[in-house]
């Protein structure tokens, strides 16, 4: 393999601008090494002469397959308990207060984690609510976990995690909600396993989505970045239909709804940006 010429600051700027527009993922200069290495790898893997040739391939390749390959390489999708926990703080500090305001008494609060992968996110939400939400005893909360992959859903239901996956859980909560297994892994307690409903969901399948209604909070993190423009628009619209008016949707840390849809109101709580389905009569501008 011949050596590929180094990525210049101008190449980097041009690439990150394009990648941001396509996926909503923003790389600043601190990610130079990470991005450059992956770009250089793809330049040689595609037998491109240099960055410019490769960039043209990326931009003009009819199937968009190279963009997909690169997106997979550029996103490290590791999942673990309390990942991006600031959003759970936002949930209990701000979002739920607004949700209970529009809810009718007796109606359950519905929280939906999609994709939930092996269950770390919905279980984290459940634990966080029990530990941090003062009003948990006054409301019924329903938590759904969805994924397209049934194998991973089965593992979510079993709820067995590596020490690495649970390392963000405080010791007192480990004691309360987990059991140590002989092989060194941890299993989440039966009560929590029973409290989350795991359901296979394909966002492109109207019948799958029709199972959900009056959802109040959706966590959809690091999923839509993998979709093309129209699929993203369709997914946002599908979420919109399942949501109660006034309900919220939280995207991943590096994601923005600006690449996806303008159906939602942009809201800021503290330093967290979330998106809200307009309340009736509020169907803004």
């Amino acid at each position: 393999m011949s050596a590929v010429k180094a990525i210049t600051p101008d190449d980097f700027a041009r690439f990150s601008e394009y990648f941001y527009r396509k996926t909503g993922i923003h790389f600043d200069d601190s990610k130079r090494y990470f991005v450059d290495r992956r770009l250089t790898d793809r330049i040689s893997a595609t037998d491109s002469q240099d960055f410019n040739t490769y960039f043209r391939l990326l931009r003009l390749n009819p199937s968009g397959s190279e963009t997909q390959v690169l997106t997979n390489l550029m996103t490290v999708n590791e999942t673990y308990f309390f990942r991006e926990a600031y959003q759970f703080e936002c949930l209990t500090d701000f979002i739920l207060a607004e949700v209970v305001r529009y809810k009718r008494a007796g109606d359950p609060i519905r929280i939906w984690s999609m994709p939930c992968s092996s269950g770390e996110e919905p279980y984290s939400i459940a634990i966080h609510l029990m530990e941090k939400w003062a009003h948990i005893d006054r409301y019924d909360v329903e938590i759904f976990g969805s994924d397209i992959d049934t194998t991973i859903l089965a593992s979510a239901q079993t709820g067995i995690y590596s020490p690495r996956s649970v390392q963000g859980v405080p010791p007192n909560q480990m004691k309360k909600y987990f059991t140590k297994l002989r092989d060194g892994n941890w299993q989440i307690c039966q009560d929590l396993r029973d409290s989350v409903e795991f359901v296979r969901t394909n966002l492109n399948e109207p019948a799958d989505l029709a199972r959900f209604s009056r959802v109040d909070v959706i966590f959809c993190r690091n999923l839509l970045i993998y979709f093309d423009d129209m699929s993203r628009r369709a997914a946002a619209e599908a979420f919109y239909e399942t949501m109660s008016p006034g309900a919220f949707i939280c995207l991943g840390h590096s994601e923005s709804m600006s690449r996806i849809s303008s159906l939602f109101k942009v809201r800021r709580f503290g330093s967290t940006i979330v998106y809200q389905k307009p309340l009736p009569g509020e169907a803004s501008a």
Partner: peptide
């Protein structure tokens, strides 16, 4: 327990019919 097992609607009740 305040967090309770939810039920999604069955596809047959809900969907495209």
């Amino acid at each position: 327990m305040p967090i309770m097992k939810p039920k999604t609607r069955e596809p047959s009740e809900a969907a495209d019919a």
